[in-house]
Nucleic acid binder design. Structure first.
Lengths: 129, 129
DNA sequence: CGGCATCCGTATAGATACTG
DNA sequence: CAGTATCTATACGGATGCCG
């Protein structure tokens, strides 16, 4: 598929509007309540289901299963079953999944530097109306 | 404060678990359906309410108002009223709001590079079950 | 152990109509 | 022009119980 109408559709993804939509779609995937925490739990290497369940405090089995399935579908996580008794299932970040850690770290850095200012602003707003 | 139990509790926010929670909280604020699009619309300079409404395709007045109010509360946006007839209200990113563009760009770059792979993985998953 | 199915409450967001 | 108010639909997420 060679680019026949590249210039017409979108000069590059560097255009702000297209970039915005790309960000929005990405946030729609990873911006839910649990995905980032699960990715964080997996970031240190392959672990099994119940280990994730323990590490991600407060997540229900249902949400963990749904989150993992979503990550697997998007190619961010691999699922490996060992048909032992009792069964054992390992989850591991793919290369794609690990690459996600880069923007997440940038976000973490921003949060660390600016969240205090945000909370202060919010408090000031609440106080003064 | 010398490290008595540094290894146990958390040396700095550089520790993965704390960083994760910071990211999650940040995503909880900016990861909704409209915030990023609105910030994008504001990224090129101060504009008024209806101009944002036009630029952010598909947003309702209600959602735009709520999103702007949230951004204002968090100190990411300033609201300036001109008591003319008809009234005019300009919205503008604060320094804090502009600083948010940095991690968003990182995210946009990741999306540009990896979203095709994600969509392909999703399609492959759907096809093969 | 590692799930899945079901039920249900709440938060989110859209449509519509109205106002200073 | 720049919002508010109200109603409603749906998606998200939690609790519980069952299954291979």
């Amino acid at each position: 598929m060679v680019d026949t109408n590249t210039a017409v559709r979108a000069p590059e993804a560097s255009n702000p509007h297209e970039a915005c939509k790309a960000v929005v779609e990405t946030l729609a995937r990873i911006g839910d309540k649990w995905t980032v925490m699960v990715v964080g739990a997996l970031s240190q290497g392959p672990i099994r289901y119940n280990e994730i369940h323990r590490r991600v405090e407060g997540i229900s089995q249902r949400m963990l299963t749904l989150t993992l399935k979503g990550l697997e579908q998007d190619g961010l996580v691999t699922r490996t079953m060992y048909p032992t008794i009792p069964p054992r299932v390992d989850y591991e970040l793919t290369e794609l999944g690990r690459s996600l850690i880069v923007p997440l770290k940038t976000l973490a850095e921003w949060a660390r530097e600016n969240r205090p200012a945000m909370l202060a602003a919010r408090e000031a707003f609440r106080t003064r109306g």
